[in-house]
Simulated scan of single mutants.
Amino acid sequence: MKLLTFKKENTYALGVKMDEGIIDVKKAVELFPENGVATDMMELIEGGDEAVRRLKQFVKSLDYKGAGFAKKEDEIKWGPAVTRPSKIICVGLNYKKHADETKSKYPEEPILFNKFDNALTGHLTEIEVPRTTERLDHEVELGIVIGKTGKFINEENALDFVLGYCTTNDLSARDIQKRSPQWMLGKTNDGFAPVGPYLVTKSEVENPNSLQLTTTVNGEVRQNSNTADMIFSCEQLISYISNYMTLKPGDLIMTGTPEGVILGRPIEERVYLQPGDTVTVEVEKLGALTNTFVEDKG
């Protein structure tokens, strides 16, 4: 299933993308009462595979004729596909060709940093270019959404702890990022973690370690790679992170970016993101996530 959130009455509502349109789950449950169907994204995630199964069965049973719960995509205002993660864990230098382009050594263990929920935003939202940076960069990434609690997870069954996957963009203020050995300040400005448009359940992704990723800036292709180039696989990342912190439902792991970032270009060719630019990042099977950049309104 393709799950999503959209703004409704000052909150985020749960939606499901179907051929008939976007299903407003809460509205559908009001019209066709069904016990045990989650109507909030985090409630669904916390319910795990069983909650997904119930929702899938429910939406398949719906009668769309004359109903008021199916919306067109251009009628909604998108929210982040994951709304309240307890942790946003990001991975640096996790693609061989990206390490090559930045002239960095391949890490022996995953390089981890964090973002906070102020950075979360959704598809087709505007993102302010902070006045504090002159070097804003794009980073298409595969996002992993955890579906059940786990600690010291084995690589062999790591994907059992996944609820689904999403397209993400690890926006990075390179000048701020380089001011200290800790990257956080250049990574978690407001809107620096677009997530979406969908959270795609894991049953629709046969192998997360073999997915195409692309980025376009104003229609020009900038990144074009595959998760097969990752240094640490999805299973390795989940297992490694769980050795140091308990992973919980809704936790988001942003697995690193491939080559093609602005920082990787020759200095004379580095034109960083500016107000007016439109960036689309896409991961195979997960959908294209588009954002437009605007001036910092203060």
Rank of each mutant, 00 (worst) to 15 (best):
V145T: 03
M245D: 04
E259T: 12
E259I: 00
E134H: 13
K202Q: 07
E9P: 03
G68P: 10
F161E: 04
E268Y: 13
Y240Q: 10
T188Y: 11
N118P: 00
K178D: 06
P85L: 03
G21V: 06
M42R: 09
L273C: 08
V145K: 01
V221H: 11
T11H: 13
V145N: 00
V37F: 12
V261T: 15
I176F: 07
V205H: 00
K27F: 04
V59H: 10
F116E: 08
N118M: 03
V91H: 01
E101N: 07
A193R: 02
N207E: 12
E220C: 02
Q236H: 15
L263D: 12
E43A: 13
T215V: 13
L3F: 13
S210Y: 12
M245I: 14
D160I: 08
I238V: 11
D117H: 08
M1Q: 03
L289E: 02
P208G: 00
I111R: 05
S242T: 09
V279P: 14
V59N: 07
D175H: 05
G143S: 12
E43Y: 08
N35S: 12
L120T: 05
I45G: 01
E295S: 11
V281G: 02
K105H: 11
V162G: 01
Y95G: 03
P275F: 06
L263F: 14
F69P: 08
N224M: 10
D229H: 10
K187D: 09
R131V: 11
K187S: 09
K60E: 15
L44M: 06
A13F: 10
T39Q: 13
A51K: 08
E9C: 04
N207A: 03
N209R: 03
A28P: 11
V217T: 07
T168D: 01
D296V: 02
A119V: 05
S242P: 08
E282K: 14
R174Y: 09
G250C: 04
G196D: 08
E109T: 14
G196V: 04
T39V: 15
S239L: 02
D229N: 11
N118E: 12
G92W: 04
S180G: 03
V16A: 06
I144R: 02
L120W: 09
I23Q: 05
P249H: 04
T290Q: 09
T168S: 08
D170G: 03
N226F: 06
Q177D: 11
T133D: 10
L3E: 04
T255C: 13
E46A: 09
L120A: 04
R222Q: 13
V271T: 12
K72D: 13
M18N: 05
N218Y: 05
G260W: 07
D296F: 12
W78F: 14
G122N: 04
F6R: 00
I267L: 11
G68M: 07
G143N: 03
L142H: 01
E295A: 10
A158L: 03
V279F: 15
V16T: 09
F152E: 10
Y272K: 00
E73S: 07
I76N: 03
Y198G: 02
L62I: 06
E134W: 01
K27G: 04
E220A: 11
K178Y: 09
R135S: 14
Q236E: 15
I262K: 09
F6V: 01
G287T: 10
M42P: 06
I176W: 12
P181A: 00
